[in-house]
Computed example of a mutant assay.
Amino acid sequence: MGISLQKGQKISLDKEAGSSLTRIVMGLGWDSVKKGGLLGGLFGGGGDIDLDASCLLFDESGNLVDTVWFRQLRSQDGSIEHTGDNRTGEGEGDDEQIRVNLAAVPANIKSLVFTVNNFTGQDFSQVANAFCRILNGANNSEIARYDLSCQGSHNAMIMAKVYRHSGEWKMHAIGEVGQGRVASELLPQITPHL
C-alpha cells in the first residue's frame, strides 16, 4: 500500500518504489452517488458521472507540448497511453488508467501533470469513492494515492506533477481543486506549478 498524498507533498518515486522506476500508471476510480430519497430525486442526485484522467506534457520552459486524454489516447511520441474513456464509473478498481513509460519520455519533456475533470459537470460532492493513484507499472504496486472524496463545488483537480530532477523522477502532489470539464481549462492554474 502506498502513501496517502497530502497537498503540496513532494516524494521521490524511486525511493517509494524501492527501485528505479521505468513505468508508472495513473489510476482513476469512482462510483456515481446512489439515487436516494425524495430530495435526491428532486435535485438531480445520482445519474452517470464521467470523470476523466488526463496527462499534460510540458517542456523546460513550461510550454504545453502534448496532452493525453480521452480524445487523444496516446502521446505523439508513444511513451504515454490512456486505456480509454469510462463514462460511468462502472466496475471495481481503476475506471481509467494512463500508462507512462518514463524511460521513453522524450528528453525535452520536463514535467507530466496529471489532472482529473468531471466531463458531465457535477461537483465532486456528487461523486462517491473517487480516488486517483500512482502505481509502479512494473508490478502494479501502489506508490501513492489521493482521495478525491473532498466535498465542494469544484469539478476538477490538478492531482500531481511528475518531473525530472537530478537524473531521477520525482512527484509533487499538487491537490489543487478547480473548475473545468476538460484539462485545458485548468492551464491557468497549472502554469504556476511548472
Rank of each mutant, 00 (worst) to 15 (best):
G2R: 11
G2K: 13
S4R: 15
S4N: 15
Q6P: 03
Q9R: 08
I11P: 08
I11H: 11
S12M: 02
L13E: 08
D14G: 01
A17Y: 06
G18R: 12
I24S: 12
V25Q: 10
M26K: 11
L28W: 12
L28H: 06
S32Y: 04
V33Y: 05
K34V: 01
K35R: 13
L38E: 10
G40A: 08
G41K: 06
G44F: 13
G44Y: 12
I49F: 07
D50Q: 06
D50V: 01
A53W: 09
C55K: 06
F58M: 00
D59K: 03
D59M: 03
E60S: 14
S61L: 05
V65Q: 15
T67P: 09
W69H: 11
F70M: 10
F70V: 09
Q72W: 02
S75D: 07
G78A: 07
S79L: 04
S79H: 07
E81P: 06
E81K: 13
E81Q: 15
T83C: 04
D85K: 04
D85P: 03
G89Q: 07
D94T: 05
D95Y: 05
Q97C: 14
I98A: 14
A103S: 15
A104V: 02
A104D: 15
P106H: 10
P106S: 15
P106F: 11
A107Q: 14
V113K: 03
T115G: 13
V116P: 10
N117Q: 09
N117G: 14
F119P: 09
D123T: 13
Q126I: 06
N129P: 03
N129L: 07
A130P: 05
A130G: 14
F131C: 00
F131M: 01
R133G: 03
I134A: 09
N139I: 04
I143C: 00
L148Y: 10
G152C: 05
H154Q: 13
N155V: 11
A160E: 10
R164H: 00
R164W: 01
H165W: 05
H165I: 04
H165M: 07
S166I: 05
W169S: 06
K170I: 00
H172Y: 15
H172L: 00
E176Y: 00
E176P: 02
E176C: 07
G178M: 00
G180Y: 12
S184M: 09
S184E: 15
L187F: 02
T191G: 01
L194D: 03
